[in-house]
Amino acid sequence: MTLLTVSNLTKRYRRGGKAVAAVDDVSFHIDPGETLALAGPSGSGKSTIARLVMRLIEPDAGGVEFEGDDFLALRGAALRARRARLQMVFQDPLAAFNPRATVARVLDDPLRIHGIASRTERPHRIATLLERVGLTAGLAPRAIHEISGGQRQRVAIARAIATKPSLIVLDEAVSALDVSVRGQILELLLDLQRQEQIAYLFISHDLGVVRAVAHRVILLDAGRIAESGDARAVIDAPRSAIGKALVAAAPRLHTKRDAG
């Protein structure tokens, strides 16, 4: 059974009186425990798709089916309850948290809202979650702005897995991190995937990272799917113009050095 089915998704924005399609007739599916990457240049619609799938914005046309239900038909409390199964991690680990929040409050919210743990159980659950993402429980009382970028992104992942989701949308989740931290976060994500069969919608402009962590990839160009398939097959031998351009533009440590 597929976990998420997106069919003919379309979102237009008005710009200077004209309607511009940010996402144009995009269809794809994700299986349980699978990583599907969306890659493309800026303005290709990958972040818009993330927000449409999360229902942070509403599409102009198309359907989203999640865990067998019409996700777009859900309203109010039913939608909020279902959000437990579909979580998101943002690019900027500082912007994704209330500037006044502490680590404990951030992790308390999902546990409280979805009735996962009683008030007395929650501190213990928060400690477990922190340890699950490689942090110490002692971090709980700290303010979000006091901890490092890598720690923040781990807290964001802890928040995302608190409600035991089946799918996490990772919107450039490792792009803002230092390279040494990035590797650790990717390992953590893959570790969680292996243990809890979480599927990822992995949005990135970095084909190197996509190739390393994704099972399948969709290359987007101007809101449309340009190419899709097995991540390594597509990136090793792109057929679309945008695929070739993205591969050519990826920085390489060794090959192109003498070009200048």
Binding site: L56, A84, F90, D92, A95, N98, D109, P110
Partner: peptide
């Protein structure tokens, strides 16, 4: 429009709780 409001929605927080716990204090 900030990400942390989007995160609060993604977590499933009630709109009034978002307005008065996340948005108003800031």
């Amino acid at each position: 429009e900030r990400d942390y409001v989007a995160s609060a929605r993604a977590v499933g927080m009630h709109p009034l709780a978002i307005a008065f716990r996340e948005v108003l204090p800031n």
